[in-house]
Each structure stands twice: as structure tokens, then as C-alpha cells.
């Protein structure tokens, strides 16, 4: 095998969340394990939300990426052994989210009630004169907010434990 585990992770940084093209699956925290056995590479993934409809798509993208790099014996499995939480998004990932216009999630343990999402900092102006419009958004992992300073709506990547 010409790649080490770390190198496989680096390769997979090219695979982005289909709905957030600036965020890699590695930074999103959904790649939980890489195993190398001779010439075979096995990747373990876990979904952000159990009902995430993008999971199969992401799984195929990972396989494609490995094949592109000459790894013919590639497999991907889905596991809940190490379940995803929003705390698994890396610092780099959080910065990418913000740049994309999505407020990064607060630490999951702080999400105790809907009210704590009332004044999420705006990803554009960083102001907190914001308001929660809906804890449910256009995808399972996003909530909808409004910034009174920018006078524009924004979304947050939801905290989930």
C-alpha cells in the first residue's frame, strides 16, 4: 500500500459535504475510521443525522476518491459505534462554515433548551442582535435565524449531542 492512514485522511479532505462545498467530510467529523489491510482500504463513516439523505451520495464520493487514487480494493461501511455530534466538527471546519455563511454550532452540552439558540452570533457581522426563527431548517442539520443588524436571515449548523 502506497498510502499511510494519515495520507488517506488527507485524500479524503478533497471530498466535500454535497450541500456545503467548502466543508470536507473529514472536517465535518463523519469519517470515523480508516483501516488498511494489505492493498485494501476500509473507511468507516457515521451520519450527522440518522435520516440524512446525503449519506449514500457521500459514501459513493469517498469510494470514487479512493479509486481515483488507484485504490481498487476500497470499501465503506456505516457505523454508529462512534456517533456523530456537532462537537466533532474541527476548528478548521467551523471556520469554513462561517465563511460559507453558516453559523457554527455552539458546544453541544450547552444546548439544553430552544431558548439558548435565541441569540446565535451572526456569521456575517458577529453581532448577537439576532433572533431564532425556527429550530428546523432547510436540511435536518440547520436552523433558521434573523440578524437585526444585517437585516438578513442566516442559518446555523445545529448543535446535536
Amino acid at each position: 500500500m502506497k498510502f499511510s492512514k494519515a495520507e488517506i485522511f488527507t485524500l479524503l479532505e478533497d471530498v466535500k459535504d454535497p450541500e456545503i462545498p467548502v466543508l470536507s467530510l473529514v472536517d465535518l467529523g463523519v469519517i470515523t475510521k480508516v483501516d488498511i489491510d494489505g492493498e485494501a482500504v476500509h473507511v468507516e463513516m457515521t451520519p450527522t443525522f440518522v435520516g440524512c439523505p446525503a449519506l449514500d451520495f457521500m459514501k459513493n464520493e469517498v469510494l470514487e476518491k479512493l479509486k481515483e487514487n488507484g485504490i481498487t480494493q476500497a470499501s465503506v461501511s456505516i457505523s454508529f459505534k462512534e456517533p456523530w455530534s456537532s462537537d466533532k466538527i474541527s476548528e478548521k471546519g467551523k471556520a469554513a462554515l462561517k465563511q460559507f455563511g453558516l453559523a457554527p454550532p455552539m458546544p453541544a452540552h450547552l444546548f439544553t433548551d430552544i431558548e439558548v439558540m435565541e441569540h446565535v452570533p451572526c456569521p456575517r457581522c458577529e453581532g448577537t442582535d439576532t433572533e431564532l426563527k425556527n429550530p428546523f431548517g432547510p436540511t435536518l442539520c440547520r436552523s433558521i435565524h434573523y440578524c437585526h443588524t444585517c437585516k438578513e436571515a442566516f442559518e446555523q449548523f445545529k448543535p446535536v449531542s
Binding site: V50, F80, P83, W84, F136, V160
Partner: peptide, 23 residues
């Protein structure tokens, strides 16, 4: 164990459902 693992994940998601109902 597979059920326990899945349940740990699902219960985090369901928090949004019960908080919505309660509100």
C-alpha cells in the same frame, strides 16, 4: 449493542422534537 449505539444517536436528535412539542 447495535441498538444501544443507534439509540444513543437518535436520542440526541429527538431532543429537537420534544423541545418543539413542549414549547
Amino acid at each position: 449493542e447495535p441498538l444501544a449505539q443507534l439509540a444513543r444517536k437518535i436520542k440526541g436528535e429527538l431532543k429537537y422534537h420534544t423541545l418543539h412539542a413542549n414549547t
